[in-house]
Design a protein around this nucleic acid. Structure first.
Lengths: 330, 330
DNA sequence: CTCCTATATGCACACGGTTGCATGAATTGG
DNA sequence: CCAATTCATGCAACCGTGTGCATATAGGAG
């Protein structure tokens, strides 16, 4: 492998001159620079960034820890982070933590050892554990998702409450009177906020809440969907707290011969890719996942003066084909 | 930031002793080792892997260049690479090349500068360009996908031909006599092979091929689907060369009021997540994407003796709900 | 007591760049 | 023609860790 010292020898200069020439230092004469460039080219030189990294104290790398690569939901987050990082000429180190705290802490250790210039932790359950690991050396970190409103750590999340409110409002405006809500696991922060949004909308309009609990998986949507749709007075609309459960509900409705959207409106949350591609594409609330990724990178890298440590992004109601005017009551 | 020299000073030893102690060198006495461990702990020491990297000449990092993070199809590949790399205690640097050769070469340069221990290039169109960049320094590389059978470079792909053959055969065994094939863009290598597999199966059974060309996008599936299903004698089964196009065809059928699978069987290729989640889930040929990722890492990292430079994995026919016995001819 | 052998640790250099400061050469002004 | 200044380059230290070899100390055998 050819180094700057090799080039220096060939060009009859010192290796510091080579370094400066290749970095366009104006103090090196154009003639020398040109010569060095030429020799470098001839020898097939390739910069070894490891030297620079050690000398300059930066790694031009950021780390991203994602709970579960398997879940399509995180894909746009990764994309956002990758693209924004690339804009800054930064590389991305990706770790999947399998939603397991041990792996998560392991990933943090790994990235700290690599001295990444910044760390993005997505949807962790253990803020304190991570901060504890990072604290001794004050590594810069940004969290995405799962954020408490009064979190002392820099985070990015979206407004689940108002997103859920919008979704419920949408159904109400279509004339639905009986709107069931299929909640996520209520230990989770966003699940609680989404429930709140639903409740607020329903109560503001003098409707009675009808709450069921799932666990954000498709199969829980299916099971609970079967139950709620077999009730004597079944809802005319279901708001599922995420798309996976919404798809489970659709499955259940399908098996029960209930037509969507004519006989049942369904709305989800997140705007996950598979839901977009259904034959009757799902109406949902889009979480700006890609933008969340981009913003996280910006917060980490943008010239040191973070305007704010907390960012809450808005959501967007995406009306597609699964919501429909309520049928009149007989 | 506390370094080994700091620890050494505190513990009254030299930094080489610290290095050895922390690496469990048996030559350091248990007493000293324990003491050094303790001091390291007290000072909140964290290994800086950059030093090791430079000293040992390895980076414990592999690079993965993916054409397009946006496409869910690549997700299992990333997962496979990430998991396998983690098993080896390797980190993963991820680059999305936006299916643009310039970005691709840029990504290769970046990873080379970072001195990754191995490079995985997924579905490139420009093997020579990349090898040209890598050649001068003989960086280890493995390609995934888009492989020519006689490629001189180490690659992993799956057997598109036999996969397509299986798909067509499946339809034939269900009694279909008129099976349309919606091909991918025929410049692409796998598109050609899939077409060959289809042709072989159809001809072996004395059926007449009915070939249409798409471009692997959902919308091309929709457009061509509309056309082929509006023919006077429309096919009873469609084999789309990938899942996205299959979903387009299903959309078209849906709009034309053609019932799937009763009136039309549809089969895809790849087993992309959204196709799995349709209300009537798609029958398809699974490309072992995750395993391809894992294998690529293994080829790069496993103790230097690659058994073979070319791996062609098998595919798996996944029968779900979109294929059905052919209706009898009247 | 002396010699030999383990055992434990330190010294110094290596890895591949970057950078503050010094030095030598060339140019300019008087 | 000399001094002052600018310009181009080299020297050497540095970043944090790993490692071959030398050295110091202790323990055991004769």
């Amino acid at each position: 492998m050819v180094t700057m010292r090799d080039i220096a020898k060939m060009a009859g200069v010192s290796h510091s001159t080579v370094s400066r020439a290749l970095n366009n230092d104006p103090r090196i004469s154009p003639k020398t620079t040109e010569k060095i460039r030429q020799v470098a080219e001839d020898l097939g030189y390739s910069l070894d960034i490891r030297g620079r990294v050690l000398a300059q104290g930066r790694t031009f790398t950021i780390g991203l820890a994602i709970p579960n690569i398997t879940n399509e939901f995180f894909l746009p987050v990764i994309r956002g982070v990758e693209h924004k990082a690339a804009e800054f000429d930064y590389s991305l180190i990706l770790c999947s933590t399998r939603a397991d705290m041990r792996f998560e802490l392991e990933a943090v250790r790994l990235m700290a050892e690599r001295r990444v210039d910044g760390l993005i932790i997505a949807w962790t359950d253990d803020f304190e554990g991570i901060i504890g690991k990072l604290e001794p050396n004050k590594w810069p970190v940004v969290f995405i998702g799962n954020a408490l409103e009064d979190s002392p750590y820099p985070f990015i999340d979206c407004d689940h409450r108002s997103g859920a409110y919008d979704a419920a409002k949408h159904l109400i405006e279509l004339g639905h009177k009986h709107i069931a809500f299929l909640a996520g696991p209520l230990i989770s922060i966003d699940a609680g906020e989404r429930l709140d949004g639903y409740k607020q909308a329903v109560e503001e309009n003098d409707l009675v809440p009808d709450m069921w609990e799932g666990d954000y998986t498709r199969s829980s949507g299916y099971t609970q969907g079967k139950k709620m749709l077999s009730c004597r007075r079944r809802p005319t609309a279901v708001f599922a707290a995420n798309d996976w459960m919404a798809m489970g509900v659709m499955s259940a409705a399908n098996e029960l011969g209930i037509k969507i959207p004519e006989e049942l409106s369904v709305i989800g949350f997140d705007d996950v890719a598979p839901a977009r591609h259904l034959l009757t594409p799902l109406t949902t609330v889009r979480q700006p996942a890609q933008q969340m990724g981009r913003t996280a990178v910006r917060m980490l890298l943008e010239n040191g003066k973070p305007k704010s440590k907390r960012v809450v992004l808005g959501t967007e109601l995406v009306v597609r084909k699964t919501t429909h005017q309520a049928i009149e009551k007989r």
